[in-house]
Structure formats: structure tokens, C-alpha cells
Amino acid sequence: MTVQSFSMTTFILSEDNGIIFEKRVPELSLSEFLCYGPQKEAGKSGKSLLRKTKDGRIVEWNVEKDDSLCTLQDAFQQVEPSLGFNIELKFDDHIVYQQDYLIHVLEAILQVVFEHGEDRSIIFSSFQPDAALLVRKLQSTYPVYFLTDGGAKIFYDVRRNSLEEAIRVCLEGGLQGIVSEVKAVFRNPEAVSKIKDAKLSLITYGQLNNVSEAVYLQHLMGIDGVIADLVQEITEAVSDLIKPSKVEEEESLADEMEEVKSKPNFSQRELSFLLKLIPELIQ
């Protein structure tokens, strides 16, 4: 299944008369939100968008192909029905949210999902532990995954600081799985078996997932899926790595032996070595 990640940043950066404005998306009305960037009406220009780099610099919004902003309902109605959605529920890392507010936001999202999601494959995910737990309580139709960077950053909420804590959140809240930064998994490969033993699904994200060898290694580890930017390229490269050297319509025992030989047979020691080596090579 191919899944489209549908999310929105917490802030919008724009420029007006040489002055840069940073506005929180939840504080904008729908009409204000839709006035940024390219507009649906031909010949109409929206407010110019900017973006902030990791080092804090403000630069122009420059992409190969851009389109007007849309609502979740628009996405459901305009995206090919066979395409699944990963709806990431984004909240500000520096705000302590009250439960009533979270419920209000989540119920508004769920209303759109139930009215327009129809038979589409959908999962929910969030870095905000309480949001993930609440969306699971509010519905049981769609799977919910807890997002974590597994300790790459340290947060006040300890539930966000390790894969072990992520497992605990999932088990206590009845969540279906974890979406982890891939480097956290490579640093702590033992966590994969713990996650599997807990009957949870494991998906990864991160820059290393644009490297086919790193994705293939995750395939060997039993990780269920990856989120990558270069979807087609990575899919084709990994398929070439895992397909057998000889395929017959009627497989014989000899064919099966050839398939086994065509795949690397790493010992646990060798696999552990690769887990330590690959991130270093990529860096």
C-alpha cells in the first residue's frame, strides 16, 4: 500500500512590505490560511511564503512544483481513492495542552475523516503522546501510531525520549505501532525485537531512508515499513536487492535453494556490526 503523509507545520512564515510575520496555523481562520501561497483562482496571487532553515535562517519558499493550500476535505476529494493517508497530528512542542482543547481539535478532524474518508486506508500518527492516546480513545476504526525520535532530542515529556517509552505508551493506550527516527533504531537494534514481542508495528522515517542499503538492512531486521522522500527510487532499488536470482513459474527445490543463496545470510554478530557501520558510512 502506498500512503500519502498529510500534515501541516505549526507556523506559517510570510513577508508583507519587507516585514516578516510568523503566525501560528491554529490561530488563523480558514480564509486567512487559504490566502497564503498560490491561489486556485487564475491570475490571483496569495501572500508570499517563506521558510526557516534548521540553522534559523529565513529563505524564500522555493520548490519545483507548488499548488494552493488545501483542507483535509479537499485532499480526500481530490487525491486518488486508492492512495492511503498517514494523517500526522501536529502540535507545538513547547505548549502544554489541556485535554479539552485536544479533544476539540481531534473531534473536528475525525468528523472530516468519517464523512469523507470512506473506504480509504488511513492511519493516524503524532509526536504528542496525549493526542495519540486520545485519538485512539475517540475512535477504533483507524490504527494510531506514536511518533518518536527515540532520544535524538530530549523533551520535558519523558514519553518522547526513548523507544522503550514509546513501547510503554503504545501498550498502555492500545496503539497499533511506532514510527521512529531510523537512527534511533540503528543505535538500539535490540528494541526491534522488543517492539515485535509487544505485537506492535514499526515504521521508520529520516534521511537514511533515502539510501537503499539502509532500507534493505531494515528489511532484514523485520521492520514493517519506511517513510522516504525518494519513494520510487528506493522501492525499485530494494526490490532489486531482495528478488531471487532465478524465478520459475513452477518452483523446484533447486530454485528455492538458489533463492536462499541469492540473499545475504548474516549472523547476529555480522548484522550487529552492519547496524553500527552503516550510519557512520552515511555521515
Rank of each mutant, 00 (worst) to 15 (best):
D92H: 05
K196G: 02
E22T: 15
E258T: 10
L28M: 12
V182C: 14
V113M: 03
V226I: 10
E251R: 15
T9G: 09
P264E: 14
I282G: 00
L147T: 03
N265W: 03
G117V: 11
K246H: 15
L217I: 09
I58A: 08
A42W: 02
E80P: 02
K199M: 08
K196L: 07
V113W: 01
Q78I: 04
R57T: 08
D157C: 08
D197I: 10
L202R: 04
I282M: 04
L230K: 14
V238N: 05
V179Y: 07
P81C: 07
D92C: 13
G43R: 05
R120Y: 05
K40I: 05
E60N: 14
L34K: 07
E172D: 15
E270Q: 11
F21V: 13
V96M: 05
D255Q: 05
G173Y: 13
D157G: 07
P189S: 15
E32L: 04
L106A: 09
E233K: 03
F186H: 07
W61T: 06
M1Y: 09
N210T: 04
G206W: 05
V192E: 02
F21D: 13
Q268I: 05
L202N: 12
D67V: 09
I123A: 08
N265I: 14
D224V: 15
V144Q: 08
E181F: 08
F146N: 04
S48E: 15
D130F: 03
E118I: 08
I58S: 08
Q207K: 14
Y97K: 10
F91K: 07
F33A: 10
K153E: 08
L102W: 11
I109L: 15
E115K: 13
T9P: 04
V59G: 12
M221D: 06
F33S: 03
L253C: 08
Q218S: 11
F85I: 06
P143F: 06
L28N: 10
E60A: 13
G84W: 02
V79P: 00
R120K: 11
